[in-house]
Amino acid sequence: MPIQYDFSMGFLVTIMAILGMVLIGSLGAVLQLERCHPRLIGAAIGALVGVVLIEAMPMLV
């Protein structure tokens, strides 16, 4: 999956942030961690995973 355009990178980071927000936010809601803002933490972790994925992909391929 070669990433050639800036739009593709931004799209991947956005999708990973939304996925992290949904998954980690839901996990935080289930564990009743509402005071820690689980959706914000999930979005940050998802964006970080997206950036790491973009940076690591050329080494793997």
Rank of each mutant, 00 (worst) to 15 (best):
I3H: 09
I3P: 13
Q4W: 07
Y5V: 05
Y5A: 10
S8V: 13
S8Q: 14
M9R: 15
M9L: 14
G10Y: 02
G10P: 05
F11A: 15
V13F: 06
V13G: 10
T14C: 13
T14H: 05
I15Q: 07
M16W: 06
A17L: 03
I18V: 14
G20S: 05
G20A: 04
G20L: 01
G20E: 00
G20R: 00
M21P: 06
V22R: 06
I24C: 02
I24D: 00
I24K: 04
G25I: 05
G25T: 05
S26Y: 12
L27K: 10
G28A: 08
G28M: 01
A29F: 15
A29M: 12
V30L: 15
V30Q: 09
V30N: 06
V30W: 14
Q32N: 15
L33N: 03
L33S: 07
E34M: 15
E34N: 14
R35L: 11
C36A: 09
H37D: 14
H37G: 11
R39L: 10
L40V: 08
L40M: 12
I41S: 12
I41N: 03
G42T: 05
A43K: 02
A43I: 01
A43L: 08
A44H: 02
I45M: 12
A47V: 01
L48H: 02
V49G: 06
G50W: 00
G50V: 00
G50Y: 03
V51T: 07
V52D: 02
L53V: 12
I54G: 07
I54V: 13
I54F: 10
E55Q: 11
A56P: 01
M57H: 09
M57L: 13
M57D: 04
M59K: 11
M59V: 09
L60K: 07
L60C: 09
V61W: 06
V61I: 07
V61L: 10
